[in-house]
Design a protein around this nucleic acid. Sequence first.
DNA 1: ACAAAAGTGTTGGAGATACACCCATGA
DNA 2: TCATGGGTGTATCTCCAACACTTTTGT
Lengths: 236, 236
Amino acid sequence: MLKNETLHLSVDCVVFGYDDSGLKVLLINQKEANNEEVGQNPMSQLPGDLILIDEGLEAAAERVLFELTQLKGVYLKQFHAYGDPNRVKQLKDRAWLRSVRTQPEQRVITVGYFGLVSLQDHDPQPASFAGGVEWIDLQNVGPLAFDHNEILDGAMDALQNQLESHHISFELLPKKFTLSQLQSLYEVVLEKKFDKRNFRKNVKRMSHVVPLDEKQQGVMHKPAQLFSFNPDHLDD
Amino acid sequence: MLKNETLHLSVDCVVFGYDDSGLKVLLINQKEANNEEVGQNPMSQLPGDLILIDEGLEAAAERVLFELTQLKGVYLKQFHAYGDPNRVKQLKDRAWLRSVRTQPEQRVITVGYFGLVSLQDHDPQPASFAGGVEWIDLQNVGPLAFDHNEILDGAMDALQNQLESHHISFELLPKKFTLSQLQSLYEVVLEKKFDKRNFRKNVKRMSHVVPLDEKQQGVMHKPAQLFSFNPDHLDD
DNA sequence: ACAAAAGTGTTGGAGATACACCCATGA
DNA sequence: TCATGGGTGTATCTCCAACACTTTTGT
């Protein structure tokens, strides 16, 4: 087995998208191998790539995400670095690496970022120019390339840990949202149910969730009050 | 300014040590530059070094910590990666880098680990063979090399966030400890005071803190009941 | 006897939990 | 008028905060 004297660094983005149908993650298909030897069934992976020599980590995450998915202005946060020496040396990943990397045997350490977007405010089918880019329901995520399942799990943990404390739920919701949408988001992310009345009591205490002079329209039931996030008063 | 086409990866360890006199951090002095050009006043830095080409990140942290400080078996946990392209390019750090690195202009990304040790169970003056290795009171930490002050702050945040939820306080205490020691630790790390009776009520609910059939000896006051950490029952 | 830290209960208030019915809209 | 999700209040309980005195040891 060939061994090289340098190592490479990449970033991988675990972008969570949310809408009323649930929590999804943005995956790309390894189609780019127009080579003789593609893996038997084309695998999916997280959007990620090597960082440039003069580029900050967060800047790299933003650039890579944009290049691969056309997404821009996404909330991104670093959560963990993955450096197992064999993380890109599994058999299943060889073919694709050879087709896309100049030094496919190189060790790669990756820094994981998780991202949050509202699927109602962003294009739910991000420009699929670079090969299939898809929002996959979290439950339907199959085996991914490299250690990307592990990275996805790490991102999910980070999201769960920070959802309540870091005022990030609003990154996953449209600018105007109902309290039921907010509650569903909490239930989906934290994987537990909340009582409607108690949940609303808590929200009322958050001064950064402000009611608008506006209601839902075109729904087959009592229209809900709309709210939005006001980043100005974050007293609590 | 010279630019090179590869980048390097290092690990830096923020090892917190605790005893009854407070919380300390392990720093090493940049003496190794037996060169003509040492920085005016020799700077301190966190123990850290480049990782080897075939080495996992955690393994690297363990190795580097041992090589630089002789500490072994320390609880270590990754908390953040630092990758600003200029983080090792400040003027203050040039001389030392030139004296110790073959490619001093190389960009270095570092992965931060925090470590926890009890100063009563470990040698409080770790073998200072590699140049000054010192436990410095957290309040007395001055300007460090590179971005190590920022890394230290990040480690402190991580420690504060995980102290209560991750059962790690015991890494900072001797195997047998009193409830007053445990309380002081919480107060020092979280930077707030606790009520003695309420604190003890909470500890009684933690089934993994078990009383021993043993008391303090040789103290000038009522000897305290000793406790230890039982990792077996972690029901809560 | 004194100094020094260990040890121990109760009360009041705040926040969490549990729970069921009426309302506004579109079809 | 019916189906659908929106919206609301109260009682209980658990958890947290505040608070002061007695005990054991060494000197």
